[in-house]
Nucleic acid binder design. Structure first.
Lengths: 337, 337
DNA sequence: AACATTATCCAAAACGTTTTGGATAATGGG
DNA sequence: CCCATTATCCAAAACGTTTTGGATAATGTT
């Protein structure tokens, strides 16, 4: 049933040493011998036990993906991120082990945990910028790639999107439609992307000579409910607003509900822009104009990066920033004159 | 840095044998000796290398999750399923390795692949009922749990929802609202759940003395576009229909778009029921009445089952069927008289 | 013929851990 | 005192694989 190198050696008539060296490309094996061994290995469907091999070689081809916080699973992008990670890992003959928060709760030092599980490097998503582990990972020799959180160390880097550019794109779009009073519903500032999105909002305003007004910004928490509350508050306090930008599609959906309930017709009375381009952004009524992020590609990039960090001692960590795209749908339109 | 059992033995002043036996609860170790060894192990943060251990003990505490087809990642439930799997696995000190389709494309026999990767059992999602691997797994000694595809073998079982009951619930609801002409947009019949949903539709009709009419059923493919096409065709050919049931929320969203474009007001002119309760079901306008499936719980159940199959030689595989719930929102209302 | 070199194979050690099968001192019972 | 039992420790073997360091026959050169 389970074929070991001993079975192959016995059937081929050579030692396990010769079998191993034949299969692993050593040049001190006669080519005819090698061919015979390879044929037997193929016939028996022999596959080297990676566990045993990794014990000897101390090389590891497993990436650990840490998804922190149950709510991270409820963001729309995890599936695509995982899909991208798997596809890239697979082309490099790496496997992907997934861990949730409880793995880190056990009080076991991060690297010990990874070593115990045979993980050679970690991709982590769901970190807040205040999480202490970030400092710990920064100078660590253990390869790490963070998603959407900046880090820069000898073996640590991150992948993300150009959030600022995305926000500028959205603001350009609204400006071109004639909007001059533009509000912003952000997420919580513990998420680095929210700091970036705020900076992009400010940059977009400045680009068009518009004044940043603190009262036009609401800090939510990425939930639909905070999107509703944000829209309600911003519009109540600033009825002159003609457009709202929102830091996530889910919050934008909440804002849409609230605005509709308040009697606004979108986009005639007010324009709305989300962020993410989650599946449902095309399903709301009106469908959301939003900033698209290709999370599948981000996953591939993260995997590519962590594999290099694991495999190549001389590899210098590179920060990878993917571009975003404005997707115009029906939630934005010309300002009402 | 990396602490091995030899470091602990050296520092504690005992052999590696005694250290191992002390840490693993053997009773031929003096209790004072044990305490001393445990203190040293704790001080050094010693964690047994699972790779080495599994090589010796041939026990494995890794579950392989196979997600087949890129489109499986785009179904709304994968993230919740994974979350549930991880949480349950973690309580049993199991890890979760994820594989995509390409892992099976390599031509490597399934069990060899799992053995090579140190996987003790597999959870598989995305299978069509026509996939040949199902027969292969049925009588295999390798532990397997399928998601939403029936299988029954000595080491094989499946977890799913009561799709028929869900459909009957939806039909009851529509019947109570006065609907008598009820159409059904199904997914493709290679997905077992679609056969179940069709059977449930028929059962619900029969329960209320309504006649099953083949012309009232459209076979889609789970895409939004097929939902649009299904609504268009069913309504065009059967204008007497007052309600549509749909086998997934995404197709329901497509049907909603089409019906709206055709000038129907929902639910006044026609009622619509989806299936899944995906996040966006609450975000469409009107929000979808739908059948809720708790995929997180399904993930936990699958993990619980596969762990039992791996750990307990005497465990008889149990089919696990979770109940569904009707979630009434705004897409259903009384039939127009 | 003697020595050096090359080709080709293999035993042993290693990886980190677990477990088998003693070894030995202490203790208790006849 | 002698023998049996118990407590407590440890060397060795095992797991499946890789790699080091030979061993040896054949061949070539002087």
């Amino acid at each position: 049933m389970i074929v070991t190198i001993r079975d192959v050696a016995k059937k081929a008539g050579y030692s396990i040493t010769t079998v191993s060296r034949a299969l692993n490309g050593f040049d001190d094996v006669n080519e005819e011998t090698r061919a015979k061994i390879m044929a037997v290995a193929k016939e028996l469907n022999y596959q080297p036990n990676r566990v045993a091999r990794s014990l000897v070689t101390k090389t590891v081809n497993t990436i650990g993906l840490f998804v922190l916080g149950r709510s991270s699973f409820q963001q729309g992008f995890i599936a695509d991120l995982v899909s991208g990670l798997i596809d890239e890992a697979s082309t490099h003959d790496f496997d992907l082990l997934i861990f949730g928060t409880q793995s880190l709760k056990a009080g076991l030092p991060f690297q010990q945990l990874c070593h115990q599980r045979g993980v050679g490097g970690a991709v982590i998503t769901g970190l807040k910028i205040t999480d202490p582990i970030i400092a710990e990972l920064e100078d660590s020799p253990f390869p790490t790639v963070l998603i959407d959180v900046p880090i820069n160390g000898p073996k640590a880097t991150y992948v993300t999107f150009d959030n600022q550019k995305g926000m500028v794109q959205a603001l350009d779009h609204l400006y071109d439609l004639g909007h001059r009073k533009i509000g912003f519903i952000n997420g919580h500032l513990e998420a680095w992307v929210c700091r970036e999105r705020l900076a992009g909002y400010k940059k977009g305003l400045a680009k068009h000579g518009l004044t940043y007004n603190k009262a036009y910004v609401y800090n939510g928490n990425f939930s639909k409910e905070s999107g509703r509350a944000g829209a309600k508050e911003l519009i109540k306090k600033n009825p002159e607003l003609t457009a709202l930008m929102v830091a996530s599609d889910l919050m934008a959906a909440g804002a849409l509900e609230e605005l509709t309930a308040m009697g606004y017709a979108l986009p005639e009375d007010l324009s709305l822009v989300g962020f993410d381009d989650q599946t449902f952004a095309a399903l709301t009524s009106p469908a959301l104009t939003t900033i698209k992020q290709d999370e599948y590609l981000l996953g591939r990039l993260a995997a590519e990066n962590i594999i290099k960090l694991i495999n190549d001692p001389g590899y210098l960590p590179e920060i990878k920033t993917l571009t975003t795209n404005l997707v115009i749908r029906q939630s934005t339109g010309p300002v009402k004159s």
